[in-house]
Every structure is written in structure tokens, then in C-alpha cells.
């Protein structure tokens, strides 16, 4: 009985003393923090992907609080919802932006792009790029060793073993841009997702002359310029034998898709048009 009482008293006393010390230490070292930072952090997706250009969501949140207007500050993952929430917390307005998605500018599947050599090194695009141009005659296209897939924190990119190309799952893609930075060939691009995910882009990055590009890959852009002439909005430019569609100007009319001789212009998620309507 005595032992129990004594131990209760001793432990209790230690507990109380420790609590008092902790209370004063906590008071002494309390850091004044803008409560809005925590609020913004809650509004953010919390992926810490670095897509905004800051190291983690917390840094982005404090940058938002200290900025006078949001301007370039933008969480690509949270999109408009998150940005509106942040604007509400800060009492400022924010411009609506169209959501983006990562797009692979290469359609050189194993079927259309014949292999000319065989790589036998570390499975990394960065290391392979330092060794040679690629396993095919095209030195610009997707290597398929998956550096983008490794960089993606959302699991949105996988390399399809059938085609040898990286594939972006647009539902999972948050357009954080990690893959764009990871790709040593620079063929991943963030483009507008488009209404109903409809988008048109040149799925090729080959800057070689037409004959060489075509020899290397039958789906390559050969720089013929037909699409440039066809485009009513002046959205397509041709540089170094390669067409590029400016997604700010493109109105998704699909005229370029029809004239492309190699089919390197991709139109995604459009409803299939019946033949008689086309005539």
C-alpha cells in the first residue's frame, strides 16, 4: 500500500513539474505564424510535387501569403478549385486558367519506328542519351526507359511495353511538370487539356529532313508544311522541319489532322465522325 502511494506521488510530481517546464518552454519558443498559411496548406492537395516551383506545399503557402497578388503563383495540381480557395482565404482574386495535361510528342511505336540498334545499359533515358541517340534511326523520339514514369509522383505515366512509348493517364496527370523536367529528350510538354479532353498536337519532335525522318519513323513529321497552310487560325508554325501547334491559338477544327500525310498530328477524344458527314 505504502509503495503504491509513494510511487503515485513521485510520478505525479515528476509529471506536474515536466508539464510546467513544457508549458513555459512552449510559451518562450512560440513562433508567430500567419494562420492563413495553415489554411492555405489545407486547401492545397498536399502532394509536395514541386510543380509550383516551390519546395513543397508549405513553402508555396507562405509565398502566397506574402505575395500581394497571386499572379504567377499557381498550384497546377489543385487547379482552379485550389486557387479559388486560396484567393478566398487571402481576399484577392485569381484568374481562371485552363487545366493542362502532359503530352508526349512522339508516336514512334515499335511498329512504325524500326530498330537499328539494341541498348544494353542501365535502364535510364538520361544515361542512354549520353551513350547514343536511341535504338532507332530517330534521335529525337521517346527512348522508353521511363525516366518520366520514375519522376511522376502521381503514377500517371507508364511505359507501354507494346509500343515502347511513355503513356500519360490524363485522369491522374496533374500537370505538375516533373516529367517535362525529367525527359532528357525534351519531348514531354504541358498543353491545355481542352474541353472534354479534346486536343490536337503534333506527336513528333523529329527535326531531321523529311526523307531521313520518314525513313526512321513512318509516323514522323516530315516538315511538309501542309498543315501550316491549312490552319485558318495561324496556330501552326514550321521550324527545323518540324510543325508545332500553338495551343493558345488552336481552335480544334481538325483541318490539319486531315491533311497530314504521315498522321503525326494527333486528335484526341473527338467523337468518331461518320463517313458521309465527312464528304
Amino acid at each position: 500500500m505504502n509503495i503504491i502511494v509513494v510511487s503515485l506521488i513521485v510520478l505525479g510530481t515528476i509529471g506536474i513539474i515536466a508539464a510546467v517546464i513544457l508549458f513555459f518552454v512552449a510559451k518562450k519558443f512560440y513562433v508567430e505564424e500567419d494562420p492563413r498559411i495553415a489554411e492555405i496548406e489545407n486547401a492545397l492537395p498536399g502532394a509536395n510535387c514541386g510543380g509550383c516551383g516551390f519546395a513543397g506545399c508549405k513553402n508555396f503557402a507562405s509565398a502566397c501569403v506574402s505575395a500581394t497578388e497571386l499572379g504567377d503563383l499557381r498550384c497546377p495540381v489543385g487547379g482552379n478549385n485550389a486557387m479559388n480557395a486560396i484567393a478566398e482565404i487571402l481576399g484577392v482574386t485569381v484568374a481562371e486558367t485552363k487545366p493542362k495535361v502532359a503530352v508526349l510528342r512522339c508516336a514512334g511505336t515499335c511498329a512504325v519506328r524500326p530498330r537499328t540498334s539494341h541498348y544494353n545499359g542501365v535502364s535510364s533515358c538520361a544515361i542512354a542519351t549520353a551513350t547514343f541517340a536511341g535504338e532507332t534511326g530517330c534521335s529525337f523520339g521517346c527512348l522508353g526507359y521511363g525516366d518520366c514514369a520514375k519522376a511522376c509522383t502521381f503514377g500517371a505515366i507508364t511505359v507501354n511495353p507494346e509500343t515502347g512509348l511513355a503513356e500519360v493517364d490524363e485522369d491522374k496527370c496533374t500537370a505538375c511538370g516533373a516529367c517535362v523536367k525529367a525527359c532528357p529528350k525534351g519531348i514531354l510538354e504541358l498543353r491545355f487539356k481542352g474541353s472534354k479532353s479534346r486536343r490536337i498536337y503534333v506527336s513528333c519532335a523529329n527535326k531531321d529532313k523529311g526523307a531521313k525522318a520518314r525513313k526512321a519513323c513512318s509516323a514522323a513529321c516530315i516538315g511538309c508544311g501542309k498543315c501550316v497552310k491549312e490552319c485558318p487560325f495561324g496556330a501552326i508554325t514550321l521550324e527545323n522541319n518540324l510543325a508545332y501547334i500553338d495551343y493558345n491559338l488552336c481552335r480544334l477544327c481538325k483541318k490539319c489532322v486531315a491533311v497530314c500525310p504521315t498522321g503525326s498530328i494527333q486528335a484526341l477524344n473527338f467523337p468518331v465522325i461518320k463517313k458521309d458527314e465527312n464528304i
Binding site: T116, S117, F132, A133, G134, G137, S139, D208, K209, K212
Partner: peptide
């Protein structure tokens, strides 16, 4: 005076 392909496949 044009492009050629180097031993590693680059133009």
C-alpha cells in the same frame, strides 16, 4: 553542306 549522322546517331 548539310546534316550527317554521327556514329552515335545524332544529326
Amino acid at each position: 553542306i548539310a546534316e550527317y549522322t554521327d556514329p552515335q546517331g545524332f544529326s
